[in-house]
Design a protein around this nucleic acid. Structure first.
Lengths: 351, 351
DNA sequence: TTGAAAGCGCTAACAT
DNA sequence: ATGTTAGCGCTTTCAA
């Protein structure tokens, strides 16, 4: 019997049928005709008894655990992982799957997360979601090859696993277009200096918008530094000190934007009157708590989690046809989140 | 056979013993004597085959799923839930338990999380960790009574469930003592105005330290407002405008401290030279990114998660003796995290 | 349209 | 010190 004490035989007895019939009805087993009347009776019996199947028995019999594993780096450092969990879980519930989560230390070169994957395999998960902390290219643990798996926020160096990543270019386009539409033509870009996809792709988006609007690109307005608050501050001080300073700053992430806020304050520049700023990531602890609120681009963590589970389910149901891999990772939309840091530039500026 | 294809019979065959013996050896079944030599042979066979037990079969037989559920509010909004997950998971691994996580919407009065608890029960978890977003008193869902359960970051109104909460008083004491030891005697307290335990207990800690050091308490230095950045800013502006302004501010949380930073900046007060600030919560996105870094008090989320699982394990093993409940919740230490926002007060102050 | 029965891999009571 | 065996609750083949 299930944990609550009622088993399929109890339902069968109450409905006056065999356990086989109960199973058929409750599982909607295909190619099984049970009279509508019987079905109703069974359903009612199950309901009155509060019957739920014993998952272990079912798992043993069907050889499907009903578990899927989420392996995520650094669950504890940002809310991002939380959003992935949420998305994954919502999708899992739809398919009556249970999500098991394992935290992984940040990958210390080479030694990828074989052990963590093994933990999940030992737990008999049917499939694994492998999520990284930020968008990058990775070599997946060898033992991940033995299980259905999909990548979240990273791409497989060997390009064999399905993956979902943020549409970095699109996000940058949305951010910069927002600035251009507000009237800005001199826009600085405080970029990251790591060799990661976001660095390159956000720059592409930045250029794309300016180009599309026929705005000449001043390369001196494109700066790079580590994507932290302090470097963001330093870069902003530098670029804002120029006589032909930009009227707006597009920042690689919210932390750099936070640095830019400080620089603006020190320079006596009011945001957004004297300077507009757009960030990236939408880390609410920062973006919503700055003065004024930071207009930024949100990362699709929830959506990636959801997508990953849905994809896994398709994979599990043998959907080898719709092979998502080779045509590259799926890029998910990064929406602009408008708060108060963007306004039209001052008219009386000197070019 | 287990998911990887090798079952207990394979091990038995290779070791040349019965499956019973394999089971005994691998589970260290008490009151079973197996020769050291046989044990070794079995262990080796299991290792070479890479045998792991089929969890479903074991669960079915023992009627223990090996699953424990973590029900957490708002997983996706702060890293706090992540820290709880981490602590719980580390403890779970020690006991060979698998952690299943369910997110819950923030409790919308009355309608507590019965459904979420039910989800976990349906999944046949052996026990439930019930975690709230912030320290408060709650009425637990009725159906939580049917399962071994412990509370994290909240206390049961009816005081029947074991619970772990932060030692708010101790945390406040650490914070304020740090200020006093740096030489401050006029210390303002920007408190929350919600009727939650933290509000009252942090105030108790604040008073305790001043009292202990024989520092008279100026009630006008104790202000209250919603625990957000903006109210923190407003309060700081107000108290810092006074001619006998405090030389240090103890803030209810990091967000209010963030507001105080802004107030200080506008007033031309340098932190920590002209004003020392201590926060609470240690939300790193804020505390580590402010200039200078915010000295604050960390919440014991990891520890609460760990404690909860350990306690649950004791409960499950029938440790009804060590009934933790009635003597109130277990209070876990909140350590001070020193960054750069505290210094000795300026000597040339006018009282 | 319904039911009987086998058996998933394991643990534990009982034999030897 | 080791082995035989029943059976956990369910799904599924096969028969009726």
């Amino acid at each position: 019997m299930a944990v609550n004490g009622v088993g399929i035989r109890d339902v069968a007895r109450l409905a006056g049928v065999s356990i086989t019939t109960v199973s058929h009805v409750l599982n909607d087993t295909p190619q099984t005709r049970v009279s509508a009347e019987t079905r109703a009776r069974v359903r009612e019996a199950a309901a009155t008894l509060g019957y739920g199947p014993n998952r272990a028995a079912r798992a043993l019999r069907t050889n499907r655990s009903g578990l899927i594993g989420l392996l995520s780096e650094e669950i504890a450092t940002t809310p991002h992982a939380g959003r992935i969990i949420l998305g994954a879980q919502d999708a899992a519930r739809v398919h009556d799957l249970t999500l098991v989560i394992v935290n992984a230390e940040r990958e210390s070169s080479g030694s990828s997360h074989e052990d963590d994957v093994q933990t999940l395999i030992d737990r008999q998960v049917e499939a694994i979601l492998y999520a990284t902390m930020y968008h990058r290219q990775i070599s997946v643990p060898a033992n991940l090859r033995g299980v259905p798996a999909v990548l979240i926020d990273s791409t497989d160096r060997d390009g064999v696993l399905p993956a979902a990543v943020p549409d970095e270019v699109g996000g940058a386009v949305a951010a910069v277009a927002h600035l251009v539409e507000a009237g800005h033509r001199r826009i600085g870009f405080l970029n990251n200096d790591d060799d990661v996809p976001a660095t390159h792709e956000r720059l592409i988006g930045f250029r794309q918008v300016l180009h599309r609007h026929g705005i000449p690109i001043d390369e001196r307005l494109i700066l790079q530094a580590p994507s932290e608050t302090l470097p963001g501050y330093a870069l902003a001080r530098e670029v804002l000190a120029r006589h032909d300073r930009p009227t707006a700053l597009f920042c690689y992430n919210d932390r750099m934007a936070m640095g830019a806020y400080r620089a603006a304050a020190e320079l006596g520049l009011d945001i957004p009157r004297d300077l507009s700023i757009v960030g990236f990531d939408d880390q609410e602890l920062i973006s919503a708590n700055l003065f004024p609120g930071l207009t930024t681009v949100a990362l699709p963590h929830y959506e990636m989690g959801e997508w990953a589970v849905s994809t896994l389910v398709r994979l599990l149901s043998g959907d080898t046809e719709h092979r998502l891999p080779r045509n590259g990772p799926t890029r998910l939309h990064c929406p602009l989140v408008t708060r108060g840091s963007v306004a039209a530039p001052q008219e009386h500026r000197k070019a």
